[in-house]
Amino acid sequence: MDNIGYYPGCSLLGTAKEYEQSIRHVFSKLGINLIEVDDWSCCGATSAHATNHLLSVALPMRNIILAKKQGLKSLFIPCAACYNRFVVARYEIENRPELRKKIEDVLEEKIETDIEILNMIEMFQRIDRELFLSKRQRDLKGLKVAAYYGCLLVRPNGVTGFDDPEMPSAMEDVVRLTGAETVDWNFKVECCGASHSITNMTVVTTLSKRIIDDAVENGAEAIIVACPMCHSNLDMRQRNIAKMDSQHKSIPIFYLSELVGFSMGIDKEDLGLSLHFIDTESVLARFSTAIVAKE
């Protein structure tokens, strides 16, 4: 069994519970052992980097130091926002010696940054294609989905070093392994409004509506995400969008790990699908019984 370090991030303990549940089930099925960073703490999120630069680097670094002490060579960070804070903090430490010195003083520890940081999609890219297909129990053929990356997986270009910042395609490759089809669309890296969800909801409903509408116009029945913030803005806030516009056509929003888990035949309750605000049965019902027998 492969061992990989795991930093869930705070959202996965609360608003993104289903993301955590589906990840645990999917990777256990794939034979990967996720080792949680012992006593991990918050990355500081938007609130740290918007108000205190030093803090926004120190908080992720505390966790990197812990992971290194635990002997972890790779760290899987499923939340795109945490993932971004970690890679940006590491980049800053590696490129600004005077900042490294300051952060080492704050943490009272030497910093070593040689640890591989993986987002949700990169985790799936590591899985052998044959192994992935051998675990598949449902062919999601005929399901049309839009792969949505949002901001923090692909930007800033050259810092996350993941895929193309304007036209990424790695998530589509993973989605296709479930049998589902991916649509071509325009908003895969547009912002959903992020933390304005609480402070200025109009920003979020306006931006998220444009994203959902474009996915629907291009034939998608669902949107696939790998970020708790994107999920809550597109799923939970879709109720507010529907209130704003009576013509709004609702579509379910899945975490990538939920879609993969469903194709592997994992129980819908185990994947946390009932925790969504927008019903998922409308698109999944037709596949529910279609478990493929393996020889």
Binding site: A50, T51, C151, V154, R155, P156, N157, E166, A194
Partner: peptide, 25 residues
């Protein structure tokens, strides 16, 4: 919103999102 679209597209590699954070601080 800190979406980093500006920082990614800038022809001068000017990290405007980080610049905005500094102004807030």
């Amino acid at each position: 919103a800190g979406c980093l679209t500006c920082s990614t597209r800038c022809p001068q590699n000017f990290d405007l999102a980080k610049f905005m954070d500094a102004l807030k601080e």
